[in-house]
Every structure is written in C-alpha cells, then in structure tokens.
Design a protein around this nucleic acid. Structure first.
Length: 483
RNA sequence: GGCGACGUACCCAAGUGGCUAAGGGGGAGGUCUGCAAAACCUUUAUUCAGCGGUUCAAAUCCGCUCGUCGCCUCCA
C-alpha cells in the first residue's frame, strides 16, 4: 500500500510500526452544531480507509474522538440556555444519527476530551518541567520557539508566520505563535482543578493525550480535514514529540474540502449544507457514493446535480443486480455459452487484483468504482448474449460475489434492489404504495391481454408522472423508481 | 506578502514517462420492444489551460505565462 503522507509531501510505502498491526486516529467533531457534508466526507473517507486496511489483512485499532469542551460549546450553551455538557451530548447524539445513516462505522474507541483531563494535566505538567511550556495567569502555553521541528507538517517556518501578521496580540503569551495547553476559566465557566488553578484544556492537547493513552507513543496514521494541518496537527506534533521525545505519527493523511461555487464550504461563509438537509432530499447511498467518486485529497464541488448523477450510477448498479437475479431464476434447460464468455471470465479473474491495485494506491476509490462499472458493463453484455446453463450461472454468481466484496469495502452497493427502490420512494416522496403500483400493473396486464394499447399506455404514463417506470419482461412487468 | 494545490470531452472524474487517454452522467444514431423501459452497439478528447524545454518517447518531468482555489484566524 502507498499512502500520501502530508509530512513527507509525497506518497510513501505503508509500513506499520508493528508488522500486521495498524493504529489509526482521526479527529472527530467539536460537538456544538449540526454536522455538514464536509464532516461527512471526512468521516466517510476514514471509514473506508479503515475498512480497506482491515480487508488487506491488518489488525487495525481505530480511534475517533469527540471534543466535548471548547469555547464554541460554551457559547452555544449560553445561546440555547442549557448546560455545556447537554450541548455536547445533544450534538454527539445527532452525529451518531447522521453517521449511522451514512454507513460510517463506530470507531474502536471514541474518547471524549473531558474524560481525559487527568492525562492532559500530566502532559502539560511534563511539558512545563521539560521547559517547553510556561504558566501565565492561570493558563499554560506551549512555547513554539523551543520546539525545533515546529512547522514541519504545514511546511512553514516560524519567521514567516510572524511576518505574516494576522495574529492577535495576547499579553499572556511570550510569542504570538505560542498556543494554549490549558486555559484558565472565568467565573461561571466550566472548570476542572489543576496545578494552575481552575481551568479547561486547550483544543490541541486532547488528541495528544487520548492517542497516547490508546495508541501509544508512536502510531501509524493520523487523519483529519486539510484545514486541521495548521495549527491543530502542527501543535499536536509539537506537544506530543516534546513530551515523549519520540516521533508522534508515521503517516499524516488529510482529506480535501467540499466546495460550493468553487469556494470552500464553511460556517463563516454560510454556504454549508447539513447532512440532515441533504438526507431529506437524497438517500444516503448516493451521498456516500458521491463522496467516494472523487479521490479523497481532491476538492469536490457539491451540488444537487452531482447527487442526481450519483443516483443514476447507483441505479445502474442495482438494475444490473436485478437482471442477474432474474437470469439466475430462469429454469435451466440447455447449456449455451455466450460470445463474451471469455471476456467476462478474464475480467472476473483480474477484478479483485485491479480493485486492490486501485485502493493500494493511496485509496483511489474513484478508480476502484470505475472498475466496478467496467464489470457491470461486461456482465450486461454477457447476459445480452443469452447464455444458459450451469457455466453461465456460475460466472454470474461469481460476478455477484466479487461485486459484493468490493462494495463491502466501500460500504456501498450492499443492499437489495428492492431496498434501493424503497429508499428511492422515500427520498423522492413517491405518493404511491407498492400495492397501488401492483394494482395498476394488474389493470394494465388486462388491457394488454385485450390488446388495448391505449389503455395500457395510459397506465404507464400515469405511473411515470408519479415517478414510477414500468418494465415489461418476458414473465411479467417489473417496476422501478425513476431517478 | 509567505506556503501549497489544481486546470483532462457538453458535465463529473481516473490516469503523473511508453499498451486504443478508465468509469459515470448527458447528447445523437441504431439493435431489441405492440409502444416503452432496461441493456447493448456506434458516435461525442489525434488530445490533456497556453507557450517553450528535457527525452527515442510527456497529459505525465522542468521553466515561464494565464486562470481558479486553499492554508497562514475557529474550521472536516
């Protein structure tokens, strides 16, 4: 496997610290507001990395944290007139609802910052005694000038950053770039006892404490959105490496942003879409597919148009699944090979190697999906040749298994066509029930038997206007939701 | 100002030195069908923002130009 390492600035061969074992950490959310599609991208990307690493035979431990104490949470609590921890809990619950919908699995450990106050205090104390941090009016700051490697992840040097202005002056800091490890709390704010008086942890220290506790001194993969590279991840490196004296993380991976009208989706611009809003209009599978159809490091332009295309692609997939099922259900009478048997056989042989080659190359899900649709096309073409018998059934079964295997890693394409159509009926607000549709199909069957084509076509048209497409097959009429 | 990324067909999107430039969506024509739908076939990039260079060979490496975006402040 090759992984693009932000620290190295290039793809590197993946060699875990401990052979056969992978330890991975990704930055979760600060629980103070609804999650938007950008959070979904990050969560899905790391979910797929985790699934693939596991598929590749590694024993993986995956940690994803929740920041449950922070200025934004405190402000939100004031706004909503509820306790800060109630705010955190509310948005964590909501996060789980969103992620469950999107097929994002739970991490092995999902620590919350406030459960690790003691560990954080220990690190902060250690950093003070080692001379990397100083206390000032009840707060503790990390002195970046003392840490030689500062800037190595974000590729910038301290001098340039100081010259770059846009840094607020803070009387308590020795240097404007110094960052808070521990913040003294004002009266009425949540606070924990510490050697420096009542206060709360700074944002960055929690990830250092929780990863150290669960993954050890040096671990394999640390991920997050590209906007966390600086300052968050840079600061994590400084704290952790200053404290342990050992390398913090071997591979840093960062996902790209979602854009709207070419601009980064962000709270301040107000151009964001919450996961909830999107799932009101679209089923979750097209959303997940859409986010995986572009390489994780590239920007993705978000639009309804794109989601509709994703819907069409998924529909193509399930339509083919339905077709293979109809095919396998046919009574076998004779053994007949189709002209493209060899082509299909060849492709079946190299499908999984091709899938792995794509995923091994820095988790190229876009290429992997391309391979899936290549198989879909070849499979359809093969069935067009009207093969029959045991050999044909075995090839088609094999194709289905392989598609399921690849889909399992991406966690898409793993429903039945019926579940897909049902989901579409919900997301598209189809007013008909399945019984309504079946009744119309029965009416139309009668009309067709009487060769009353006008009446038959009228029923077809009527259903189409309500979003249902009829398909006449040899042994009856099927239906599907129009995408 | 500093650092970085990107620019591939009508749209989305792989491909980063050498097999016919993946795949999806859309358009046009066709096969099939009572009509459709689905599927399949043909077609839609002699060319990868532009210019110049390196090389037997470049979308892929180097340089310049143009354009777009990001980080440098909380941010997935």
């Amino acid at each position: 496997m090759r992984i693009y390492n932000t620290l190295a600035g290039e793809k590197e061969e993946f060699i875990p610290v401990t052979p056969g074992q992978v330890r991975m950490y990704s930055c979760g959310i600060t629980a103070y507001d609804h999650c938007h599609i950008g959070h979904a991208r990050s969560a899905i990307v790391f979910d797929v990395m985790r699934r693939y690493i596991k598929y590749r035979g590694y024993d993986i431990t995956y940690i994803r944290n929740f920041t449950d104490i922070d200025d934004k949470i405190i402000n939100r609590a004031k706004q909503e007139g509820i306790a800060w921890d109630a705010v955190a809990q509310k948005y964590i619950d909501e996060y789980y609802r969103d992620m469950d919908m999107l097929g994002v699995g739970r991490a092995d450990v999902e620590p919350r910052a406030t459960e690790y106050i003691a560990e954080m205090i220990e690190i902060v104390s250690g950093l003070i005694s080692k001379g990397y941090a100083y206390e000032s009016e009840g707060s503790v700051y990390f002195e970046v000038a003392k840490f030689g490697g500062y800037g190595k992840l974000s590729k910038r040097d301290l001098e340039d950053m100081l010259a770059g202005a846009r840094i607020e002056v803070n009387e308590r800091k020795k240097n404007p770039m110094d960052f808070a490890l521990w913040k003294s709390s004002k009266e009425g704010e949540p606070a924990w006892e510490s050697p420096w008086g009542p206060g709360r942890p700074g944002w960055h220290i929690e990830c250092s404490a929780m990863s150290l506790k669960h993954l050890g001194v040096t671990f394999d993969i640390h991920g997050g959105g590209a906007d966390l590279i600086f300052p968050h991840h840079e600061n994590e490196i400084a704290q952790s490496e200053a404290f342990t004296g050992k390398p913090f993380v071997k591979y840093w991976v960062h996902n790209g942003f979602i854009t709207v009208d070419k601009e980064k989706m962000s709270k301040s611009l107000g151009n964001f879409f919450t996961i909830k809003d999107i799932l009101n209009k679209f089923d979750s599978e097209p959303v997940r597919y859409f986010l995986l159809s572009t390489h994780y490091r590239s920007p993705i332009e978000f639009s309804d148009e794109q989601l509709k295309e994703a819907e069409a692609s998924i529909d193509r997939y399930y339509t083919t699944v339905l077709r293979t099922r109809d095919f396998l259900a046919q009574a076998v009478t004779v053994e007949k090979s189709a002209p493209d048997e060899k082509v299909l056989e060849d492709l079946l042989g190299r499908f999984i190697p091709g899938f792995m080659e794509a995923m091994d190359d820095d988790f190229n899900t876009a290429l992997a999906i391309g391979g899936i649709f290549e198989l879909i096309r070849v499979l359809n073409k093969y069935m067009d040749g009207k093969p029959a018998g045991a050999k044909a059934s075995s090839l088609i079964n094999r194709a289905q298994d392989l598609l399921k295997e690849a889909g399992g890693v991406l966690n898409i394409f793993n429903r039945t066509p019926e579940q897909w159509y049902k989901a579409l009926m919900v997301s598209k607000n189809i007013s008909l029930t399945e019984a309504d549709i079946e009744a119309k199909i029965a009416d139309r069957r009668k009309a067709r038997a009487d060769k009353d084509w006008t009446a038959a076509d009228l029923i077809r048209k009527e259903l189409e206007e309500k979003g249902i497409i009829l398909e006449d097959k040899k042994d009856g009429t099927g239906w599907k939701v129009k995408v």
